[in-house]
Computed example of a mutant assay.
Amino acid sequence: MSSPTEAPAVTVLGLGPMGRALAGAFVNAGLRTTVWNRTPGRAAALVARGAVSAAEAQEAVAASPLTVVCVVDYDAADSVLRREAVTAALRGRTVVNLSADTPDRARDAAAWAASHGVRYLDGAIMTPTTTIGTPQAVILTSGPADLHQEHLPVLEALGGSLTHVGEEIGLAAAHDIALLDIFWTAMTGYAHALAVARAEGIGARRLAPFAQGIAAILPPIFAEMAGQVDDGDFSGEESPLTSAASSMAHIAHTSEAHGIEAGTMRAAQALVRRAIDEGHGGDGFTRIAELLGRR
């Protein structure tokens, strides 16, 4: 077994809940872990476990060949990485940016890194803090495949599935945006359903088991729809858009009868109505993806 001084080194910038989870996973894996946070005082527990707290960001990045960044967004990341002293310390080293933002911001960050001699991978964390360092963690990276492979032995300490989704630097963020689109749309739908159910005298706990049943049928539907969209198959033999339009109208009417705002459902209903007006009433719901994707 390697001694602590022989172990690979890694730096973590940002010690919010996720940053602390990342740093903790590196410490648990026996890596020489240096940490830094803009607001002092968050490193104490990590230091007690063996991490080193740097006084300045440039000191932190100089301590390791690999720096993992996890802050609230790319504005916050840029405010640290683009300081003159930090940029100078990063030259020739690798940054893996696990902060959340848009694909365009990832591309801008990569262009900045290339112009300053900084090696760069973008990334996205798709699971909660409690999964980090466990088999349940799901983390995506994008950028040079050889750079991903070079740092994989260290990044694997974060646990679970660490997947390189492609060389185009914006792909990790693009996956993140698309997957969070599913999550927040579903969460909004569930919150709305609970409000409607309550207005009709159905308690949230009473509805929840049936809601879980709805959620359970979605994975095979997702897989089937994905194949149909990729193949350009919009068949709606089993569930045409005309049927969906009727169901959506009932939901919106019931909601509004109770004074519950139904804007999300009305927006979905408008998309379905548009497809029907264009002559696609007999198509399935996959037609909506084609309609939304038109330029």
Results as ranks from 00 to 15, higher is better:
residue 33 T to A: 07
residue 33 T to S: 09
residue 34 T to A: 05
residue 34 T to C: 04
residue 35 V to G: 03
residue 35 V to E: 01
residue 35 V to T: 03
residue 36 W to S: 08
residue 36 W to D: 07
residue 36 W to C: 12
residue 36 W to K: 05
residue 37 N to T: 13
residue 37 N to P: 06
residue 37 N to W: 12
residue 37 N to C: 13
residue 38 R to D: 03
residue 38 R to T: 05
residue 38 R to N: 09
residue 38 R to Y: 04
residue 38 R to H: 14
residue 39 T to F: 01
residue 39 T to I: 15
residue 40 P to D: 11
residue 40 P to T: 15
residue 41 G to P: 09
residue 41 G to E: 10
residue 41 G to H: 14
residue 41 G to D: 11
residue 41 G to N: 12
residue 42 R to L: 12
residue 42 R to G: 09
residue 42 R to M: 10
residue 42 R to I: 04
residue 42 R to C: 02
residue 43 A to M: 08
residue 43 A to C: 06
residue 43 A to S: 07
residue 43 A to Q: 13
residue 43 A to K: 04
residue 43 A to D: 13
residue 44 A to F: 08
residue 44 A to Q: 11
residue 44 A to T: 14
residue 44 A to L: 12
residue 45 A to H: 07
residue 45 A to L: 05
residue 45 A to N: 12
residue 46 L to Q: 11
residue 46 L to S: 08
residue 47 V to C: 03
residue 47 V to Y: 03
residue 47 V to S: 05
residue 47 V to N: 03
residue 48 A to L: 08
residue 48 A to Y: 03
residue 49 R to Y: 01
residue 49 R to K: 11
residue 49 R to V: 06
residue 50 G to Y: 00
residue 50 G to I: 09
residue 50 G to W: 00
residue 51 A to V: 04
residue 51 A to Y: 01
residue 51 A to G: 01
residue 52 V to Q: 01
residue 52 V to K: 00
residue 52 V to G: 00
residue 52 V to P: 00
residue 53 S to A: 12
residue 53 S to N: 09
residue 53 S to W: 04
residue 53 S to V: 13
residue 53 S to H: 07
residue 54 A to G: 05
residue 54 A to V: 05
residue 55 A to H: 14
residue 55 A to G: 15
residue 55 A to D: 11
residue 55 A to S: 14
residue 55 A to Q: 14
residue 56 E to W: 09
residue 56 E to F: 08
residue 56 E to G: 12
residue 56 E to I: 05
residue 57 A to H: 05
residue 57 A to D: 04
residue 57 A to P: 06
residue 58 Q to C: 09
residue 58 Q to W: 08
residue 58 Q to T: 13
residue 59 E to I: 13
residue 59 E to G: 12
residue 59 E to V: 15
residue 60 A to Y: 04
residue 60 A to M: 15
residue 60 A to W: 02
residue 61 V to I: 10
residue 61 V to H: 02
residue 62 A to L: 14
residue 62 A to V: 14
residue 63 A to M: 07
residue 63 A to T: 10
residue 63 A to Q: 05
residue 63 A to H: 08
residue 63 A to K: 10
residue 63 A to E: 08
residue 63 A to V: 08
